[in-house]
Design a protein around this nucleic acid. Structure first.
Lengths: 147, 147
DNA sequence: ATGTGTGCAAAGCATTTGCAGCCAG
DNA sequence: CTGGCTGCAAATGCTTTGCACACAT
């Protein structure tokens, strides 16, 4: 199951954040988008459509910041494009972006954890996978030659 | 051994690029910095000091682009900061950036290749490691608790 | 000669910040 | 009531682009 918008809102509230229309709208968007990779711009667009009211990008960024600070949300750097946000509960997996067709493959949590363990053994570095995407060629593009 | 500035310049020339003072200066900087991770701004600063002449950031970016297009140079995305450039021959390893102290650890090429192989087996995705850094905690910060 | 490469200036994109008023608590 | 939150506007940091002139070939 996925976390609900209400739960996000409640957690923010418990943490002392005030609940406004803007924050509620952002919470609804990120809760509804559980498995998608939304950029701040995507969230802004959807939240604005949803709220009807006036809404500014900066408010969206500030709300995303609050959600991250509360451990509810995380963002990943996906290549040249903007950062993308996803629920913290959906974290723990590695994003793989095809540099040819642009699709995003997801490396399952278990495999991701194996990688992290291997890195840890080799260097002592505790990798926080999923914060950065990996670039490369997806299975289709890799087999379909013509790099 | 590391590639020399002359070799970089010669390759550009062979490829049909004209050799100018700006390009020579950039080649010298990247050749001299083999194991460092230089941002475009770093390269700009050093190249300008080296050339004495007038030099613009855009020219540096265009030269870096030419070097990348020629397969001599590669860049990596290092977290929130600017991209960093390094000789293509120095590629093949994964960068690990500590989110606490900011130091960059390098995962040796062999280990990096093992990771890439594991990802390939699991998903078919051919990861181009080293294009993106990984975030996490370095050995020191991880052991010294207080995330 | 000629068109590629340059510096300059300005734009572009994602994100951040300063500020005065507004509204959740 | 009152300070946290908002929208607006402007600034930031990195990178790209348009342009007329310069210079490598």
């Amino acid at each position: 199951m996925h976390i609900t918008a209400d739960k996000l809102v409640d957690t923010l509230s418990d943490r002392g954040y005030r609940i406004t229309n803007a924050r509620r709208a952002v919470c609804e968007v990120v809760a509804a988008a559980h498995d998608e990779h939304l950029s701040a711009a995507d969230i802004y667009d959807r939240a604005r459509a949803k709220s009807g009211t006036r809404l500014d990008r900066s408010t969206v960024y500030r709300t995303l910041e609050a959600l991250e600070a509360s451990g509810l949300l995380a963002h990943s750097h996906m290549g040249h494009g903007p950062s993308v946000y996803h629920l913290a509960e959906d974290a723990g997996h590695q994003h793989l972006i095809c540099r040819r067709c642009g699709t995003t493959t997801t490396l399952p949590r278990e495999e991701s954890e194996n990688l992290a363990a291997a890195i840890r053994v080799a260097t002592g570095f505790v990798a926080d996978l999923n914060h950065f995407a990996l670039s490369g060629l997806c299975a289709d593009c890799a087999s379909g030659n013509t790099i």
